[in-house]
Amino acid sequence: MAQLNLIHDDLGRLLHSLSCAKYKILLKDPNTKDISKSDFEFNSKFTDRMRRIKIPLPPSDERKKVAEDVDKDRKFAIDAALVRIIMKSRKVLGHQQLVSECVEMLSRMFKPDIRAIKKRIEDLITRDYLERDKSNVFKYLA
């Protein structure tokens, strides 16, 4: 832990990856999810022709937090794009045209999901930014 500058949780995840992944560099006894120092020993029978082995780490809470932050930022970007499209260019716009222009505008930053755009449109309607005029026409409320 000291040489790799790891905390206990990260060390546990790393040891688990070395013993339970495709390449079993370490042997773990007993073969459970609980980890203690005496569970691991070097696998002397391990051989591989590859010089470098990529060992995947199990997902951590930090990665989940980053993914949640990215989703949150994308929601704000979709909201801004939808309001910008209707507010700046037109006051009234059809659903299909609104979605296609939003996808085109956001494609420089990320590939937006159509379902996420539809959810954000519904959210903007509930927050009184947009109004559904007819079945597929949206109107900007200033």
Rank of each mutant, 00 (worst) to 15 (best):
P30H: 01
K75E: 09
K119A: 08
S17M: 01
S19Y: 00
L82H: 06
S135F: 00
A67K: 09
R84W: 03
K65C: 06
E131I: 11
A116H: 08
K37T: 13
Y23S: 14
M87L: 15
S135I: 01
I53N: 04
D34I: 14
F42N: 08
F46N: 01
L11D: 07
I121V: 06
K24P: 03
K65R: 10
K24M: 06
P56Y: 07
R52E: 14
S36T: 14
L27C: 05
D79I: 05
D79E: 10
V92P: 09
R49W: 13
T126Q: 14
V137Y: 02
K64D: 10
D61T: 10
L6C: 11
D39E: 04
H16V: 05
I117D: 01
P58A: 06
F138R: 00
R13F: 06
R108Y: 11
V137A: 02
N43H: 09
K118S: 03
N5H: 11
D73T: 02
G94V: 01
D123Q: 11
L4R: 13
A77H: 03
L98M: 02
Y23D: 13
K118D: 05
K75D: 14
L11H: 08
L130A: 01
K111Y: 15
E41T: 09
R84H: 06
D34H: 13
Y129A: 03
Y23G: 11
G94E: 01
Q3L: 15
K134T: 06
M105H: 10
D113N: 15
L15A: 09
A77Q: 03
I78E: 08
T126A: 15
V66D: 13
K37Q: 14
R127S: 06
K139N: 12
M109R: 09
V83D: 12
K54E: 09
F46H: 01
S44I: 13
S100F: 07
D133S: 15
I35G: 02
K54L: 10
I121C: 04
S135C: 00
V103M: 11
R84Y: 07
L98S: 00
E62S: 10
N136E: 05
A81N: 02
A77G: 02
M105P: 04
F110W: 07
A67T: 08
D73K: 06
N136V: 04
A21G: 15
P58Q: 06
K45V: 12
E131D: 12
K64F: 10
K22V: 14
D113I: 06
